[in-house]
Design a protein around this nucleic acid. Sequence first.
DNA 1: ACTATTTATCGTAATATTGCAATATAACAA
DNA 2: TTGTTATATTGCAATATTACGATAAATAGT
Lengths: 110, 110
Amino acid sequence: MGLAKTELFTTQQNTIATFAKAFAHPARIAILEQLFKTEGCVCGDLVTEIGLAQPTISQHLKELKNLGLIKGNVEGTSVCYCIDTDNWQQMKQEMEVFMNQDTAAPEDCC
Amino acid sequence: MGLAKTELFTTQQNTIATFAKAFAHPARIAILEQLFKTEGCVCGDLVTEIGLAQPTISQHLKELKNLGLIKGNVEGTSVCYCIDTDNWQQMKQEMEVFMNQDTAAPEDCC
DNA sequence: ACTATTTATCGTAATATTGCAATATAACAA
DNA sequence: TTGTTATATTGCAATATTACGATAAATAGT
């Protein structure tokens, strides 16, 4: 059905899944890396940096923005995007709690 | 088109995206958490723990196994699944390198 | 061999995602 | 106002994902 049964899961589980979905496409990884790398915030440069069409990049940016991982600021005719550091930290912490379960886990049993 | 243009991106970017995809569904998060939590490895119990049908769970397990994050061991008529600790560690490290970029980044510019 | 139990696979329906052409919108410049 | 530039939105085609019923395959017990 292509529709996840979110009501079966905890808020934490759904949250992790939602963040993970943001990272589940290499274009969005590339966008985020570019935003981290550049001093000033890149904007339409992302279109030329990454080889995808402008509407496609715009769509990926929208998803990242909706999740709160990036912010966009209008500057004249162009839009300046950058990482939302606070939200990024929070996301990182939640992901790390999930990924660090292993430290407490017993050895592989099979 | 529903098809990611992986050739445009680096191996690292594609790898991150692939791991993230594994975490992009709450059922798989729930499965992994359950495998971490239980002493012995759970198997068909996952079906009753999580409220999804047996073929659905089986399909999610297959994806996690293909990625190498879990291992399955046949024990009689049932199959014992557990985390592949080594691969989990490697995955974690790659994800953390990506998520820790912020420590080097300048302050939000917009 | 027959039966019960457990897991995997197949087939299919519903929905989601990706990508882009075409077009709309917004801001500036002349 | 008109033109230019930059980004967003719309609409659509191709593919992917999710879920599950039906069924197959594997193993154990009788």
